[in-house]
Design a binder for these strands. Structure first.
Lengths: 131, 131
DNA sequence: GAAGGTTCCTTGCATTGCAAGGTACCATTT
DNA sequence: AAATGGTACCTTGCAATGCAAGGAACCTTC
């Protein structure tokens, strides 16, 4: 994954982790692998993240022996985690659509109920004298 | 805007600023106002950001007198800025669609050409003993 | 001249993703 | 049995960066 995605990844990680766990319980190394493929998350990121989420009551943990290494620490979404997922998913969707709206070039940004401040600046003829 | 969006805002700001400037040149205070409405960006954020972008050759600046305050420092996308916008827009779209894919619950995540590692973990019967 | 909006700016704080490094378990190879 | 390499856990330090809070200057209105 190109390194210039770095800037986008911030903060959505928790949401992605919750999404992964909503499908099935999983353990750190595997979550990291999945999210490394999907959005380029590094492994070093997952453990602090998971600890934070556990501290916040989003996930609970249990151990399961691994056939190929140290015991796996599985994470499971709590009820709080599930409701947090719902909330954050909504927040993400609204955020993403706001960004998409910004991204589309036309100026049809006056959907029904717009605030109608005197927000039209009309840069008319700005004299340039930049370097 | 709810404070729990904070986590999503990171890093996309530059893209949003470029999108705003692609429509029309603008000045810090106004960009901040627009993005404050759209995605909840704080004013204190814009000035370091703009300086960074100028240093990186993404924008150039020129001053225009204001009828209602100190002179406005207008920002204009450079050619580099325009191509950067294109690139980052693409990156954003692919990132956003990756997150959306994660977010949709079904497990149809094996599109043509999947890597086919032994990636199927099947949590089968994990014995829970969490606290 | 006080108040308040506009417009620029800075400093300090806190969050947090990442790279790099470390430990340990297990199986296979030499 | 030593070495290798994959799995799986973890930590430390760095760097980026969004924000709140504060400040200064310009302007208009009361």
């Amino acid at each position: 994954m190109e390194p210039n995605l770095v800037q986008f990844k911030k903060g959505v990680l928790e949401l992605c982790v919750m999404a992964v766990l909503a499908r099935a319980d999983s353990y750190g190394y595997d979550i990291a692998s999945q999210l490394s493929e999907a959005i380029g998350m590094g492994e070093g990121t997952i453990y602090p993240l998971m600890r934070r989420m556990q501290k916040d009551g989003i996930v609970s943990t249990y151990f399961v022996e691994s056939p190929s290494g140290p015991p796996r620490k599985y994470y499971s979404l709590t009820d709080l985690g599930r409701s947090s997922l719902t909330a954050q998913r909504t927040a993400w969707e609204s955020f993403a659509s706001a960004v998409s709206a910004l991204l589309r070039p036309a100026s049809d940004d006056a959907p029904p109920g717009a605030s109608s401040d005197q927000k039209t600046i009309t840069v008319s003829k700005a004299v340039r004298n930049d370097a």
